[in-house]
Design a protein around this nucleic acid. Sequence first.
DNA 1: AGCACGCCGACT
DNA 2: GTCGGCGTGCTC
Length: 580
Amino acid sequence: MIADVVFDLPTPRAFSYAIPSGMSLQRGQRVRAPLRRHSRIGIVVALRDGADAGLEAIERVVDSGAILSSAALEVGSWAAEESLSSWGSTLMAFLPPPARRRVEEVAPAAEFHPAGASTPELWVGSAREDHLIERLRRSAGSALVIAPDRVSAARWAQRLEALRLDSGASEAARRAAWFAAARGRARIVTGTRSALLAPLPPPATLVLVDEHDSAHKPPGAPRLHSRELLLRRSLLEGSRFLMLSGTPSVESWWRAQEQHAIRVHGERGPWPLLIPADTRGILPNHPLTLPLTRAIEEASRRDRRVALIVTRRAATLLCTDCGAILRCADCAVPLEFSRARRALSCRICGRGEPLPDHCPSCHGHRLLPFGWDAERVEAAVRRRFPKLTVSREDPRAQALIGAASILKVAAPGTFDCVGIVALDRLLSVPDFRGGERAFELLWAAAEATSPRGRVIVQTLHPEHYAIEAVKMQDLETFYQREVKLRAELGYPPFRRLCALSVTGPSDEARNLAEQCLEMLRGIEGLTVYPPAPIGGVKNPRWQLVVKGPQDLPRIISPLLAPLLERRRRRGGIVRVEMDP
DNA sequence: AGCACGCCGACT
DNA sequence: GTCGGCGTGCTC
């Protein structure tokens, strides 16, 4: 007998080994095997008859049985193709850490009943989470709940009395949860991305909570959205797939709508007043428009809490003589200005500079801070409301100032007033998800606001459809507009995007990027945008964006294979990111 | 990914 | 002559 094994290597190949007599192996089992005279952990992907003359032998097993089912192996293979990565690396990224000494006792991973596959459902509405808990409590089947981050996974584990598979739990606990799930001894397990292939006895329910959360597709391998992977898994193993979100991604909404699979849980409840406030002529001088100032006054008079959401990371310095923004000499991005630290620093290369006393381009002396970051908003609010307790850290402060993440940890209805200091930062970013992100932020703001309170949105586009839809508490309106726009402009879900980036010494990297362009140009169905330099001096890259049909990875993979394989050729390495 | 092999420039 | 840089190719 011969065992084919894949490793965490950037090669598409599997390696064949002889199986020592007396050792019995399963597909999906972890083993140690010699590779280049070193012992490495790999996964058995095939067992076959054949002469094993001249082959090295498997050293030992890591777990006593299969840790991945055939469906999970197949999902891994698909995910590898989809993200132009290797089978082995993809699988290894989704496994619990191996036990250091003893062989872990494992019951064989359950196999599947593809007949049970049903249409994936998208659950929206304020009662979606309660409904999920109720559903899982009543059902007898197994369930896997995937949350965007560890904090959220821990919360779900508690709510569902489930075992945790994420890295917030100890390694031993993660392994125990994995194997308990495989044996059917833990009916419900929760985790983050690393738990996506956890074995479950059928009939299983796969759940993705906060479907819209960008943490479901973090940077780095495996470059694939958890949603896509779970969908594939549910089809292959015949399990039910549920996605939950208050504000789903446009892609998921569209797909679910096409399949009549949107479920609204909960009535439209009382909703705070949403008031757009036009910032024209105000924002350069002050972060608070009149409506927002009034709302803060009103809330503080009633001793209620206020949150101010800032969308800008940092302010910069502006020369009021020539209108130029001070930029990093190497990276060309605006320098970040901090009054507290009395310094400028570059976000890309980290280089710090003392405050200059004149403009480098026109030598003017009138340099002013520009852009409302949390530091400047805090100072302005203190100045305007000296009696208010104002803070960027303390959640109990009367006025809490920070990024959108402060809404995520707040219970519904926490604030009497939420102010969005400058929504347009999201809308004007050259990113087709701008509308979606603005909608998501405003909806979260409304949910964190007491139904008797108000959300003040400061913007130059008070009539924007995202604002209108949140005001009316109407998901449908927003998604209809957004889907239409995406279709017209050829963005997801109607076409797929791919970003290629080439790192290396700039001339040669540029050449390589041009080669990629040549390789893809003129291919039926592809739109290729020419390479552009990004990343400044610290991390310089040439990036090109490709638009294409749904099978884009399978179109470009063979074309780019030579460039991707000879990765260390002088001139840099090519990296591919699907669905950036 | 790591690691060995091999082909060219600088050197005791 | 050799030492060692890195570009190239292979790993059962």
